[in-house]
């Protein structure tokens, strides 16, 4: 490597790691449970689910065929799942979105 010597490269990596670790400490913790988000079952429309249904009927996004399927989940703001008629655990049947204005 002629353009960038080993020492300079190692220093650049170390510096970048130091700054990035400080700037984004949550990265080290992975993305399994995103801050402020929760998996919500029974609220996604057909084709709008996120990955892997709970009953194993498919493995990835947007493969759901039924609106509001209780086995399908999507990420929603924490605390808003029940409000939208879903549950944070998979269930049989369909979600029951509340009608607007209590009607």
């Amino acid at each position: 490597m002629s353009e960038l010597n080993l020492k300079a490269l190692a220093a650049a990596v170390a510096g970048a790691v130091a700054v990035a670790s400080f700037a984004a400490p949550s990265f080290a913790q992975g993305m399994g449970d995103s801050k402020g988000k929760e998996k919500c079952y029974g609220v996604s429309k057909a084709g709008e689910n996120q990955c892997a249904s709970a009953n194993g009927s498919h493995s990835c996004q947007a493969q759901s065929k039924v609106d509001l399927d209780g086995n399908e989940w999507k990420y929603v703001e924490a605390g808003s799942c029940a409000k939208m008629g879903g549950k944070i655990q998979a269930f049989q049947g369909k979600g029951t979105p509340m009608k607007k204005n209590g009607g």
Binding site: L4, A11, G15, A16, A20, F27
Partner: peptide
């Protein structure tokens, strides 16, 4: 090309 600055952004 600034390797450190670029890597930093990619890490973040």
């Amino acid at each position: 090309f600034n390797l450190q600055a670029v890597l930093q952004d990619h890490f973040i």
